[in-house]
């Protein structure tokens, strides 16, 4: 479904993502974790055609570089900070998105009702977005993302700002989309969520992939939190000892074995 091939992205001289290869298959919920500034958002934005990059990204076999519009029509993107059109009401925003994706009138009405009710936002849809709280905006973006029945949903910290009920609903929606043949690729700092929800996971550190694979492959007998903290501490020690990420001195052996398998898929 989503194939990242040697994705590399520089901001000026500074590398943000280096030679990242991942494959997210249909039916998978794929978690993406890493410390702040590790390159998660950059990777996610590149997948959604919001950034230029080196390497290749394919969605459903279509290149994001060569056919961005076709790729975007199969994808829904949920950013980390939902800055929306504050001058529109919630319902007008949803109609705008539905118009752009060409969702027929009767279908969009049914989906707005279904997801609006599920997330508890229906009653507020006539309100201007400027009056929405962060969580309400997040719910609106989630509804707009599911409105066109995407094949792939790419999300950056989707659970931030959501109340427990909405978080639970979102998890159900994610699972249902994957059961219907879709795929989810999302970043999160909530390791418990990642551990319970994801079929596979990738850990990125300083722009490089250090671990990926099934949950069992990555965490082994320990917890995801433990693996993540070990990787982080190794990174800090490596830097203190003068090692760089490029020379691989800070990678975790157990995790890289997962990476090799996961990355090769």
């Amino acid at each position: 479904m989503l194939h990242l091939n040697h994705l590399t992205k520089y901001y000026g001289e500074k590398p943000a993502v280096r030679d990242l290869t991942l494959h997210i298959k249909a039916g998978e919920i794929y978690g993406f974790i890493g410390h702040n500034g590790a390159g998660k958002t950059t990777t996610i934005k590149a997948c959604c055609g919001l950034l230029d990059f080196q390497g290749d990204i394919f969605i459903d076999g279509l290149s994001v570089k060569d056919d961005p519009v076709a790729c975007k029509s199969r994808t829904a993107y949920i950013p980390d900070n939902p800055d929306l059109y504050s001058f529109l009401s919630g319902i007008r925003y949803l109609h705008f998105i539905a118009d752009v994706f060409g969702v027929p009138a009767d279908v969009r009405r049914e989906r707005i009702r279904r997801y609006g009710d599920a997330l508890g936002l229906t009653a507020d849809l006539a309100q201007p977005i400027s009056s929405y709280s962060h969580g309400m905006k997040q719910k609106l973006v989630i509804i707009s993302a599911w409105l066109h029945a995407p094949r792939l949903v790419v999300m950056d910290e989707p659970f931030v700002g959501l109340d427990p009920k909405a978080s639970h609903t979102l998890k159900e929606m994610m699972r249902q989309l994957c059961d219907e043949g879709g795929a989810i690729f999302f970043s999160t700092h909530v390791l418990d969520v990642a551990e319970k929800l994801c079929d596979k996971i990738a850990i990125i550190k300083d722009g490089s992939l250090v671990a990926c694979g099934t949950m069992a492959e990555v965490k082994g007998d320990g917890s995801l939190e433990k693996v993540f903290l070990e990787l982080y501490e190794e990174s800090v020690r490596g830097k203190a000892a003068g090692g760089s990420v490029e020379d691989g001195s800070v990678t975790n052996d157990s995790a890289t074995s997962g990476s090799a398998e996961g990355g090769a898929q």
Binding site: I91, A98, D99, G102, P104, A105, I112, A123
Partner: peptide, 23 residues
């Protein structure tokens, strides 16, 4: 403002973007 479900006509993307700009 209370939301009441109404039938809405689907529009072409250019029309949707233009209406958004006007708003």
């Amino acid at each position: 403002a209370v939301y009441t479900e109404r039938a809405a006509a689907a529009r072409a993307p250019l029309s949707a973007f233009t209406r958004k700009e006007l708003r």
